[in-house]
Amino acid sequence: MARVRDNIKAMTPYNPPLEGRSAKGYLLLDFNEMTIETSPKVRQALHDFVDSKRVQVYPEYGDLNEVIASYAGVKPEEILVVNGSDQGIDVVMRAFVEKGDRVIIPSPSFAMEYQSALVQGAEIIKPEYQGPSLSFPLEEVLGLLDSSPKLFVLCNPNNPTGGDISMEDVQRILKRAKEKDVVVLHDEAYFEFSGITAKDFIKEFDNLCITRTLSKQFGLASVRAGYVISQTQNIQEFMKIRGPYDVNMFAKTAIVAALADLPYFERYIAEVMREAKPKVEEFFRAKGVKFYPGVANFLLVEPKEPEKLIKNLQEQGILVRPREDPPGTVRISIGTLQDTERLILAYSRAMGWS
């Protein structure tokens, strides 16, 4: 075969357990997706697009940047629409990171951040979240910024722990990073659930790039929709990397319809974060199940017999996500109150409590 780069040959594919999960009627609590359908207005807009006889035509984006910018509270020229936030992460990596560069990723973190860095041939530095509560290693990170890295990745809230880093600490990191000419990638995949964003730092810090998704909180995972926020000069460089048609018209149509129907999604998010999640946490506390408190739509749990739990929940029609880092943990997405009641009953049966 043709010669493939050595760093690519040394990698393994990122193969999340996706196949077959949506066809068997499972309650999907494994990928932090919306557990109900996306809004009727989004579904109708997609139907209308299919019926418009324009599927065969290359995409036209119109005022898509303006629509997203208005929602995000930034300027249209500070937005790059991408094929899911995975592509946003990849574009930022490709823009700044070359073979042999150091990339700092506090760990554990989202798998695609490592994958994109490895594709570039980067050396990944992994300061570990610390102690029994998996606290963010702030002082270690600030010290590592003196070691000439090219890029620092901050998943905030963190996936898989769900923990957050305060904006005061993010600002400290940004200041130190700017002094050292280090780019900061702030992954805000769970912004709508947590309210956490570094968006207000965009004007001050030209080394800040924010990635967001519309997959989880807007129910658009299958159409692949996300965006990058950064200063205009950065966005102009990123446009040289993203292809002109990388964002398809199904995604464009769905984004516009979703952002025009915010109350639908806000009701879902409120139910998840204010009602369902506290109910799960209360159940775990009452049963002595160790979990890591977080600010996103999932919980990282440390059950006594994780493999048995996962298998038993699957037999009861519920999928959750096993984690190797931290070892012996399981990530459980939070859905509606109805989903939560089903989860609690199944978990109790799996552990022999009912």
Rank of each mutant, 00 (worst) to 15 (best):
I68M: 10
E78G: 04
S116K: 12
Q56K: 10
P59K: 07
Y61L: 08
I124W: 08
K99S: 12
D30E: 13
E66R: 14
P106H: 06
P108F: 07
G73V: 11
E128F: 12
E140D: 13
I125H: 04
G131N: 10
P127L: 07
Y26Q: 03
S39N: 07
P40R: 11
V42H: 03
E78L: 07
I89S: 03
S133V: 12
D101W: 03
I105S: 01
G84P: 03
R94C: 00
P132M: 07
T35N: 10
T35Y: 01
Q44K: 15
N65Q: 11
R94A: 14
P106K: 02
S70H: 11
E140C: 03
Y114H: 11
I89E: 12
P137F: 10
S70N: 14
K99E: 15
V50I: 09
Y71N: 09
I89F: 04
D63F: 01
V74R: 03
V67I: 15
K41S: 11
V141Y: 07
E139G: 01
E139D: 15
D101P: 01
E78T: 01
A111N: 05
G88K: 07
F96K: 06
L46N: 08
E66P: 03
D30N: 15
I89A: 11
G62N: 13
N32W: 04
Y26R: 04
I125D: 08
D63C: 03
Q87I: 01
V57E: 14
G84K: 01
Q56W: 11
V42L: 06
Y114D: 08
V82N: 02
M34Q: 15
R54I: 00
I89K: 11
R102C: 03
L118G: 00
G73N: 12
G100Q: 06
